[in-house]
């Protein structure tokens, strides 16, 4: 039950794109078509599950002063191995996703979850978090790319970089509006906007209040 909650948390309540607003570079870069958006989402999800598991395994041996370089090395190794395996054994999939794979290393969501979740939780929970965040990211990319590609049929600007910013901005505003509307209808207080300071930051670095 708890595991399911962690997974759903990543898809809705803490959706990496619409709520945490992490990983904007790949979001803007790959959502010009649905196929590349979903491809990027799934590739990032695969890396996220693996890197979360490994980082959770080594969390007790790694001193906190060197944790960031250690996590980055693990993530980069994971991505490189995934790229080579894909190129060798799934060449067709590699043809569509190939250019996105190296981008995953610098995806904030991967390091963000390593830091905020995997470094503090058990391996099983971290895998669930990876699945949830990965699916949440894929879902968000699917929505953004669906909107961009369908508008793009009439207005090609939507599939170009400026259109990406505009569509993403409108979607983020729409998601906030929807959240407020749902809260109002169920009689709960309006959700507080996420504050970007050390108490509210989801990156969860270990700075004491």
């Amino acid at each position: 039950m708890r595991k399911l909650k962690i997974i759903i948390n990543g898809i809705i309540r803490e959706n990496p794109t619409f709520v945490l607003v992490l990983g904007m570079c790949p979001t803007l870069a790959t959502t010009s078509t649905v196929s590349s958006g979903v491809g990027m989402g799934l590739a990032a999800a695969a890396v996220l599950v693996g890197s979360n598991a490994v980082i959770s395994m080594i969390r007790k041996f790694v001193p906190s002063q060197v944790r960031i370089p250690c996590y980055i090395v693990v993530i980069a190794a994971f991505v490189t191995v995934l790229q080579m395996l894909m190129q060798a054994f799934l060449p067709d999939l590699y043809k569509t996703l190939g250019i996105f794979i190296p981008l995953i290393v610098v995806n904030c969501i991967i390091l963000g979850r390593a830091e905020a979740f995997a470094s503090k939780n058990t391996v099983a929970d971290s895998v669930c978090d990876g699945i949830g965040m990965g699916l949440g990211f894929t879902f968000a990319l699917f929505i953004v790319s669906l909107v961009r590609e369908s508008i793009g049929i009439f207005a090609p600007m939507a599939t170009m970089p400026p259109g990406g910013f505009i569509v993403l901005g409108c979607l983020l505003a729409g998601m906030n509006r929807l959240g407020r509307f749902l809260a109002k209808r169920s009689g709960k207080p309006e959700p507080e906007p996420l504050r970007i300071d050390c108490r509210h930051c989801v990156m969860g670095c270990r700075v004491k209040d």
């Binding site: 370089p69 250690c70 090395v73 395996l85």
Partner: peptide, 21 residues
């Protein structure tokens, strides 16, 4: 030592994957 160990292990994994693929 920790950072070195992590790098050596990851390096070994990547080079094994390279040889296999």
């Amino acid at each position: 030592l920790t950072l070195t160990a992590v790098c050596v292990i990851c390096g070994a994994v990547v080079s094994t994957a390279y040889m296999v693929t």
